[in-house]
Design a protein around this nucleic acid. Sequence first.
DNA 1: ATTCCGATTGCCT
DNA 2: GGCAATCGGAATG
Length: 203
Amino acid sequence: MIDTYLQNKLERKFYKKDVLTVAKNLLGKFFIKVNDTNIVVCKIVEVEAYAGVNDEASHSFNGITNRNKVMFEQGGLLYIYFTYGIHFCANVVTGEKGIGSAVLLRAFEPILGVDVLAMNRYKKKLISEKEKIGLTNGPGKICQALEIHREHNGIDLTGNIIFISDAENESISILQSKRIGIKKSADLLWRFYIKDNPFVSKR
DNA sequence: ATTCCGATTGCCT
DNA sequence: GGCAATCGGAATG
């Protein structure tokens, strides 16, 4: 089971391309998190690109700080930040070291480990269809459901704890829009999502 | 030291 | 659709 995902794990070169390319290429891929007792697999269905140059909305826009320094590492690392005093958000760092760009993971479709996700989100295993939609359809929800926190900031996605794997591609239709919840550089169409997927976030 | 405010979410009307 | 929750990063004094 897990062997198949490990064999299809994305390599470093996938992440070292420019952020818009990686953002679009991440759609439809499997995001996997493994621990001692379980494995969770989700399909990536919605992302946003953030780049260091000409993008005032990006954490990297004003240069390296203690918070954003992982964004400036080489592609393939995970950048985690804490926001609104409540939530964590997960990003895939892209490009070469020093660029400062990343892809925000906005929504997942649960594939394997729904009970684990439900326990983390709702403290119970059995959930309704509506609750299943709400499991991972937002950036903060993803981190709560998959237990991704501060300690995962900087983790290498080419390792075996959290990684992303290629999917046998049934062709997907990709749509784009403005990014959600930002005020600066708000007109860039850098949000990408899979058409007609019910797990794409609503707001 | 103090102030401002955010790459969100859930609950309310 | 509106708004409170809640905290730490970043800017300002």
